[in-house]
Design a protein around this nucleic acid. Structure first.
Length: 418
DNA sequence: TCTGGGGTCCTAGGACCC
DNA sequence: TCTGGGGTCCTAGGACCC
């Protein structure tokens, strides 16, 4: 008997911060987005105080945060990525089939016979992850991914583990489960379904006219319906190589000059191309964009354009030149730019790369890129990079409440005094 | 003063082919 | 009056996820 477990970390970013701050146990904690612009993660204690609306502007919350003595952190992705890897590694000891779905959750395949105690399995996974990493997780177990997601939501109220194994228990649960809360059903789909009087997961499961579902919710909706019925449509897979990748940031202040934008785009290309080389791929296109602050009154401008490369490339110098070329097209003087970014598109594995008849096979400077990546792996990110990224990076994102890199930097190791 | 970032998949429709 | 039919490939945009 094969079952699917969804293991998901509770308030992941906040829990990461709490691992190294035992004084914050049972205290309200909030984590901010890049640039300290908005609140994006909350502990249950913070939610109980009325915080918890995703992406609410930090400046609007500041007074209430002070009043309730809420601990605030800037996001520290270096830390979160590392904690995530540790959690996933523990999971891999429990099953050979683990699909890392996002930074804080994974699907796990479990095999067991009639007598297998899935509930106990879930409890053991929870305990082990907490013991080894200090991360609280919820475990939902059922027949399909969509049902495992449902079970996971219920696990929060159920000692962290919820199993939906029999048809009877599944239907009882789906009867009270709003259709909007199903994984893959967003606001749009939910409102379309309400036209047909489908409001609960059970009503969707039993909705007889599959053509209507296909028409309004596309293939995805049909598959969700089948998954609710216990039919596996979505298999557990190891994630494939990325098909697009990008990097973008809000700036610390409004940026007016082309020079600063050139620096920022060069840095974004540096970050994104590292991901590209890490998966041994090349790209054939690059998109760059810059835009003004939509929250500010006054004239707005959104500039975006792309270029194509005649041969696939992952060469940081070539890509930076490309981004600068696009910037020349889209830059309009006089505007204060709040955000910029780049995307690398049409990504293919390097060894499947199509040669261009008229271009030299590849003018990537591979030895240079390899050496730079190697140095940065050994001595830390950004030890060596293109001068185009600038030295001061005055446009850079601000993060006033950032914790240390406890697990990834010798200088930031936690000191314990006895 | 201050408002996130990074992805995936699907479909319709246009361009182009014979 | 009526203006082919069948196919592929690509892209933009929508919807959704965490």
């Amino acid at each position: 008997m094969k079952m699917v477990a969804l293991v998901d970390c509770n308030s992941f970013y906040c829990s990461c911060e709490k691992i190294f701050r035992p004084d914050l146990r049972n205290k309200p904690v909030v984590v901010l987005s890049n640039n300290d612009g908005a609140a994006i993660a909350f502990t249950k204690e913070a939610k109980a105080l009325g915080f918890g609306q995703m992406c609410e502007a930090f400046f609007k919350l500041r007074d209430r945060i002070k009043k309730h003595n809420v601990a605030v952190f800037s996001s520290n992705y270096t830390l979160y990525d590392d904690i995530s890897k540790r959690v996933m590694n523990v999971l891999r000891e429990f099953s050979s089939k683990v699909e890392v779905y996002s930074i804080d959750e994974a699907f796990v395949e479990i095999e067991g016979d009639e007598n297998f105690d899935f509930e106990a399995w879930g409890a053991q996974v929870r305990a082990e992850i907490f013991r080894r990493v200090g991360m609280p997780v919820g475990v939902g177990i059922s027949k399909t991914k969509v049902l495992a997601k449902v079970a996971n939501k219920l696990s929060k109220k159920n000692n962290g583990v919820c199993t939906l194994l029999t048809d009877q228990k599944i239907d009882e649960t789906l009867k009270d489960f709003p259709v909007r809360d199903i994984w893959g059903i967003g606001v749009r789909s939910a409102s379309k379904l309400s036209i047909f009087n489908v409001r609960t997961a059970l009503e969707l499961k039993r909705f007889p006219d599959e053509k209507i579902i296909q028409k309004h919710l596309t293939k995805i909706g049909r598959e969700i319906q089948d998954e609710l019925r216990g039919i596996n449509c979505l298999s557990i897979e190891s994630p494939e190589d990325k098909k697009n990748t990008g990097n973008s940031r809000s700036f610390g202040y409004d940026v007016f000059t082309k020079e600063e934008l050139r620096e920022a785009l060069a840095q974004f290309v540096t970050n994104a191309s590292l991901k590209l080389r890490a998966q041994k791929s090349v790209c054939y296109g690059l998109t760059a964009f810059i835009h003004t602050n939509p929250f500010k009154p006054g004239p707005q401008y959104y500039g975006i354009d792309s270029i194509r490369f005649s041969s696939g490339t992952s060469d940081v110098v070539k890509l930076i030149k490309g981004a600068h070329e696009v910037l020349d097209h889209i830059y309009r003087p006089g505007f204060g730019y709040k955000k910029g970014g780049i995307l690398l598109n049409h990504i293919v594995p390097k060894n499947e790369c199509q040669m261009d008849l008229f271009a030299p096979s590849s003018d990537d400077n591979e030895p240079l890129n390899n050496v730079v990546d190697m140095i940065n792996r050994k001595y830390g990110p950004q030890t060596v990079k293109s001068g185009a990224c600038g030295i001061n990076q005055s446009w850079k994102t601000v993060h006033a409440y950032k914790s240390r890199h406890f697990t990834t930097d010798w200088n930031d190791l936690l000191k314990v005094e006895l």
